[in-house]
C-alpha cells in the first residue's frame, strides 16, 4: 500500500536541515530514495534498526538526507564498512547505497568479494553510466561508443553488466529495475531487504546533465521514457534472441538462491571456538590441580 509523500517527508527525511537536496532537477536518485523509504516503511522496520551506508558520488549523498543511522564513507569502501557493522551488530538491517563507479571501479574488488562471501547485506547500486559528480568522465558501465568528457570521439571499451557480474560472483539475490518502474523498484528493494544473504539491486538511472546531453539523449523526461521503451521483463527476455536483446534492459529477479551466510557461519565459529577454549581451560585446571597435589 502506498503511503502519502507527507509521511515519508516528515518521518524518514532530515526535512528541516538538508532540503531541498543538491541533486539536479529530474535526477533519478530522488526516485530511488523515495522507493527505498517506502519499502522500509511498508516492512515496518523502526528507524533505529536500519543503517544506511553510502560511498562517494551523487548516489552517496543519500546518507545525508535519510533519518536512519547513517554513515558516509570513503570512495568504493562502503561495503567494507557495512561488513564491519554487520559483524559487530548482526541484528541491524544494513543497506549500502553506491553508484556504478563507486561499486564496480574503485570498489570493484570489495564488491565481488562481498558477493563471494555471501554476507547478509543489501547493496543498492544506482547505475547512471557516468561519473556525474566529477564532470562526466566515463565509468565501467558507459556503453560502447558513447561520448563523455574523457571519450570525446566515442568510448572504445565495453560496459560491465553489474547484475550479471554479481550473480556470477555468487550473490544470493540479484534484481534489476529502472527509475521509470518506481513501484516495481520498491517491490524489488523490499524483496532484497527481506532476503537472507547478499542481495544486489541494480537500478538503471538517468544522468541527463552529464551523460544524456553529450549523447543527445534529451532531458530527464526523454531518458526516463527511453527506459520505459527499452526494458523487457525476465520472462519475455528468455524467449528473445541475443540480437533482439541488444540495447535492452532486462528487469526483474535475475538470481535467487539459498546459500549459507558467512556472518552467521562466523557466529557459529565463534561459539565453537569458545567451547573448545573452555574445554582446554578445564583440562588445564584438572592437570594443574593434580600437579599441585603431587
Amino acid at each position: 500500500m502506498l503511503e502519502s509523500a507527507e509521511i515519508i517527508r516528515q518521518e524518514y527525511l532530515r526535512h528541516d536541515k538538508k532540503f531541498p537536496h543538491v541533486w539536479c532537477p529530474g535526477c533519478g536518485n530522488g526516485i530511488v530514495m523515495g522507493a527505498l523509504l517506502r519499502a522500509v516503511h511498508s516492512l515496518g522496520l523502526s528507524k533505529n534498526e536500519v543503517v544506511l551506508v553510502s560511498g562517494i558520488g551523487c548516489a552517496g549523498r543519500m546518507s545525508t538526507y535519510v533519518d536512519f543511522n547513517t554513515m558516509h564513507t570513503t570512495h568504493g569502501r562502503a561495503l567494507t564498512f557495512s561488513t564491519g557493522i554487520k559483524l559487530a551488530k548482526p541484528e541491524l538491517t544494513v543497506l549500502t547505497v553506491m553508484g556504478d563507479g563507486d561499486a564496480t571501479a574503485i570498489g570493484g574488488n570489495h564488491f565481488i568479494h562481498a558477493a563471494r562471501r555471501n554476507l547478509n547485506l543489501t547493496a543498492i547500486i544506482v547505475n547512471n553510466s557516468t561519473y556525474g559528480m566529477t564532470g562526466g568522465q566515463y565509468s565501467p558501465t558507459t556503453p560502447f561508443g558513447s561520448k563523455s568528457t574523457t571519450s570525446v570521439y566515442g568510448h572504445v571499451e565495453h560496459a560491465f553488466s553489474i547484475a550479471e557480474l554479481a550473480a556470477t560472483a555468487g550473490a544470493s539475490f540479484v534484481a534489476r529495475s529502472t527509475v521509470y518502474h518506481a513501484s516495481h523498484l520498491e517491490k524489488m528493494i523490499k524483496q532484497a531487504i527481506v532476503k537472507r544473504g547478499f542481495s544486489v539491486m541494480e537500478v538503471i538511472s538517468n544522468c541527463h546533465v552529464q551523460h544524456g546531453r553529450r549523447n543527445k539523449l534529451g532531458g530527464a523526461v526523454e531518458m526516463i521514457t527511453g527506459f520505459k521503451e527499452r526494458s523487457v521483463t525476465v520472462d519475455k527476455a528468455t524467449k528473445m534472441s541475443p540480437e533482439e536483446l541488444e540495447g535492452k534492459i532486462t528487469i526483474g529477479v535475475l538470481a535467487d538462491i539459498e546459500k549459507p551466510i558467512s556472518t552467521e557461519e562466523y557466529q557459529r565459529v565463534i561459539a565453537e571456538a569458545k567451547q573448545h577454549a573452555e574445554k582446554i581451560a578445564k583440562e588445564k585446571e584438572k592437570n594443574g590441580v593434580k600437579r599441585y597435589e603431587e
Binding site: 502506498l2 502519502s4 507527507e6 532540503f19 536518485n29 526516485i31 523515495g34 522507493a35 517506502r38
Partner: peptide, 16 residues
C-alpha cells in the same frame, strides 16, 4: 494513480 507522487525526485507532491 500516484504516478507523479512516486516519480517526484524532490518529494514535492502529496496526494490525499
Amino acid at each position: 494513480c500516484r504516478f507523479c507522487e512516486i516519480h517526484c525526485p524532490d518529494f514535492a507532491i502529496a496526494i490525499k
